[in-house]
Design a protein around this nucleic acid. Structure first.
Lengths: 344, 344
DNA sequence: CTGAAAGCGCTAACAA
DNA sequence: TTGTTAGCGCTTTCAG
């Protein structure tokens, strides 16, 4: 069923039908009703391509994320989608499997499909591709930090501060020999956390020992393997281990248990991210909460601001930055006694 | 940059450019190369809408799933996407948040956008909407069982058998009073599992007691609340609890621990789904493995079969059904001794 | 092997 | 208030 057939059935021209679709106020009430009735009866929907060819918008945004199998990412996606849906937009979600090559492919695809905006979560984007997106003049926002660009709108979390707070907490709990299992991604966040960790150690007069720092894959297996290796290699076990994600912490705890080391009595373990499972593990995992959903919501809002601005006027603007804060979740895995009241 | 500009730059007509894009063999090598060079230099990509208006396909499939925050769903999605990507298709993933209303809205959207095919995961679809999709004549496959239709291609898991096997296992472990925490969704699977559970109890001469069966929300909280209520209401605790999902099992275990009941010594707990975390919980959770990824892969393959068939010829065909089997994962949470060697 | 032109379904400027 | 018509960017038939 196309607009012409509707027009014929109603005994009017296609222009009039188009008008009731797009500017109903410019059509006489009677004609409008008659046409609307036929539209409803026939369940007519305008052809999406034809519309796209005329309007230059698709009411679609693209979201590229590092991985599906990661509840943090999906919470961000949830936030993005919620905002988009309220605006009447659909979200095209692409999973790059932590593979920069795939990220680029999807980017190409999304731009070819003329999405109205782009959200990149923990992007691995390099300069060249960033330039290219800018040339395409498609609104874009970054969630999480990137090497490539700080001229884009972005929302990110102060992970340095979060890691610093956690490190300070571990010291406060009486730990001195504090190891770090640092995930290889997201890259910038990992670096920031490492910074925060080192800074606090130094400030507390504790020497930073590079052999206490392991760079591991950011998942359960990474934590498990890293922990095993570390204990195997070190002459003396650490007092505590700070993992850059809860998943890494889970793996580390598993490894420690397997080596008959008690958590937190023999080795304390802290995570980062406040994954849902962290309060169900044994011991419950002390961690740092990140506002994932909020990141998605704020990111999407910034994107729609851009989209709406773009319709109004083009032109250079200062990039907007939103920095969100983390929140400690003290539980049992670090052996802290006094702040136990805060427990989740 | 559009086709006309490319044509001008190359000193040929748009038809010739279009030909090198779609039927390069019909263009003289020299002209072809000249045009191709310009296309490459200018990084020209045909307008997606214009193409869509001519070709009737979008190289896009739609996948509607119940929820993002559920690793099982995302594993299915992963499988679907992998197949689609290899075929050069993009997957439009929609999250219906277990809300039938949202499922319909997305369905409308996807069809308006002329996706080439549709995959519905644990669909809540009713007759009316199923009819409508059939009328639209868009290839579709179901993953998971549905009330609405068995005239569609589908892939599903024999959950009745899986539940039966688990129940038998619990009995074998010496448990007699076996409770069930049955999730409210996915609906058909939950019913099938309940069936399997009841059948085995009967066959083993154990009376099915309805007050040992609780219908709960299919998530951690559901399991927690259900378990608390059950223990609160029952005069005597059950020997074992069979949860219809691992998440429910996690919640149940948490509740039991909180009530100072040991798992499995006081109450055994079994899950369903073999979530990644199940081998990290304390105790590690005995569960039933479901081939999520495979479900996605098979589902997508069936869909592409349909899509390709459709191009060849229309016409009625017998729906294809793929039934997959589950696999026991015996761990510590059920107190089984003998089969401990199988432990993961 | 190549070009002119019709047409995909819709929107919007212009006329009436 | 409504109709006529020129595009939007591309593909494809039909001539040449």
């Amino acid at each position: 069923m196309n607009i012409k057939q509707i027009a014929e059935a109603a005994g009017v021209s296609v222009a009039t039908v188009s008008r009731v679709l797009n500017h109903p106020e410019n059509v006489a009430p009677k004609t409008r009703e008659k046409i609307q009735k036929i539209i409803d009866e026939e369940e007519y929907t305008p052809n999406w391509f034809a519309q796209g060819l005329n309007f230059k918008r698709t009411r679609t945004i693209g979201l590229i994320l590092p991985q599906y199998i990661n509840s943090a990412n999906m919470e961000v996606a949830n936030g993005v989608e919620e905002v988009a849906r309220k605006k009447g937009y659909i979200t095209l979600i692409c999973n790059m499997e932590k593979n920069p090559r795939m990220e680029k492919d999807y980017l190409d695809q999304l731009i070819a499909r003329k999405v109205d905006g782009l959200i990149l979560l923990y992007s691995t984007l390099n300069e060249e591709y960033a330039n290219w997106i800018e040339e395409e003049n498609v609104p874009a926002v970054l969630i999480g930090q990137t090497k490539a660009r700080d001229t884009w709108d972005s929302v990110f979390v102060d992970c340095r501060a979060g890691a610093a707070e956690m490190t300070a907490h571990l010291i406060e709990c009486g730990h001195r020999r504090i190891a770090m299992l640092c995930g290889k991604d997201p890259e910038m966040e990992a670096k920031a956390m490492l910074q925060g960790y080192k800074n606090v150690l130094k400030a507390s007069g504790i020497k930073v020992e590079e052999h206490l720092i392991y760079h591991v894959n950011n998942n359960i297996e990474g934590g498990y393997i890293g922990m095993k290796k570390m204990i195997g290699n070190l002459p003396r076990k650490p007092d505590a281990v700070f993992a850059s994600s809860d998943e890494i912490a889970y793996g580390a705890i598993d490894a420690l248990k397997e080596m008959k080391l008690r958590v937190p009595e023999d080795v304390a373990v802290a995570g980062f991210g406040n994954d849902r499972m962290s309060s169900l593990m044994e011991p419950k995992v002390t961690t740092v909460e990140l506002p994932y959903r909020k990141m998605g919501i704020y990111g999407a809002r910034m994107l729609f601001d851009q989209i709406e601005e773009k319709q109004a006027k083009a032109g250079k603007r200062r990039p907007k930055k939103i920095e969100l804060q983390t929140k400690m979740r003290v539980r049992r895995s670090c052996g802290h006694r006094e702040r136990i009241g805060e427990m989740f």
